[in-house]
Design a binder for these strands. Sequence first.
DNA 1: CAGTGGTCTAGACCACTTA
DNA 2: AAGTGGTCTAGACCACTGA
Lengths: 241, 241
Amino acid sequence: MVSTPDFQPLYKQVYNVLVSRIADGDWRPAKVLPSEQALASELGVSQGTVRRAMDALAAENLILRHQGRGSFVAEHTQEHALFRFFRLSRPAPNHARVTPTLGSERIVRRPANDKERWKLALRGKAEVVEIRRTRLIDESPRVVEKIILPHRLFHGIEKEKHLPNTLYSLYQEGFGISIAVAKEELRAVLANKKDAAALGISAGTPLLQIDRIAVALDGQPVEWRISRCDTKDIVYAIEVK
Amino acid sequence: MVSTPDFQPLYKQVYNVLVSRIADGDWRPAKVLPSEQALASELGVSQGTVRRAMDALAAENLILRHQGRGSFVAEHTQEHALFRFFRLSRPAPNHARVTPTLGSERIVRRPANDKERWKLALRGKAEVVEIRRTRLIDESPRVVEKIILPHRLFHGIEKEKHLPNTLYSLYQEGFGISIAVAKEELRAVLANKKDAAALGISAGTPLLQIDRIAVALDGQPVEWRISRCDTKDIVYAIEVK
DNA sequence: CAGTGGTCTAGACCACTTA
DNA sequence: AAGTGGTCTAGACCACTGA
């Protein structure tokens, strides 16, 4: 096993090795990983230790394990990413998950402002890509979004003809960026005139505002997103354990 | 090992046994659990299997493990329960956790209405206890709450002189009810006149409404709580993984 | 010092998938 | 039938705690 300066349990060292191989793109999404035995002999540890590291990866949804088939790097497929980060659903009792579709969309590239530089930890004369879009639920507009991306990481994204429903799968497949965690701040705000026009409601309607920073596997903030939702017949649902 | 009709891995059976001992109050909060070895020989499984079950309990915060000391049933202490379920904090960058204090408080016992009977899965002529209170942050009222409890489970709670800051530790110590999960639905609403008066704001101010069902270890819903928060200078913060 | 949980190993057997 | 992950065991050694 590779020795590290600061002491860590073997299984954590193995875990870190595996994470960085995924993060660096050595193993691309949907690829089969080597078997536990293969990794164990490659790294010079026992199979049980590799298992423990892989179980941790699976617990964090970084890999998927299938008995008899093997372990696979998790994909942010449309469906998957959608339900991982899109927490809007119908209220109880059904609690049915809701599938948003795309309304209007606008995308521009421009210099970052101070707030964006701070939120995304940008340095120097950074540029950002700004995406504004409306999302429909049951055919009617319910959410307006403003998405800010560092242009450096998403080079050329502003030229995409059609952005997919879930951007996170595009980030992963097109730009090699996997989202590890999203930090969200929720507030209640009033719809301004723009919101009102986009959502077909009157100004002054209460909206749920979700302010999200998405962090990649390597710990860098890579997306700042503000969503404003009309929660008349959908809710933001969550289970606290 | 006790045989169960439907097949389950040993470590899950052990897990279930341990959960029910905690749920039934055989092991009260803060009590030291038997050691892994003791449980292993009692249940007739290997120590590694008991470890796996206990690791799962620890991952869900049902027990706390301390190397060299032993494992302990988790307590819903004031601090602990507060930060587990009270997700309001100051916005970035500080993200400091905020400690609410008690404003006004009113508690009554009365028959349940239909909505409450449905939300709390009550049957027959059920009674509930209704608590209404205001919570202060930085000395000023920021949250109004309505809490509905089945009287059957919380017999006599309406006679308590002073309710603690976090009710969940009272539920656990006074009534033997440990909260396992809370299911929350978030919406944006407008302050009505009552809200406005209680919070010292004008009617029509946007409020974040949190509609929560708290579920006990045995899976029964035991509390329905609606909180309305003024999110002018605090936010509901959450990390999605 | 004895007792606890934490790590690591080695090997057995099972269940599932694919060919 | 071969290869994968899933379960279970037994035993070794370590790190930490408290009497």
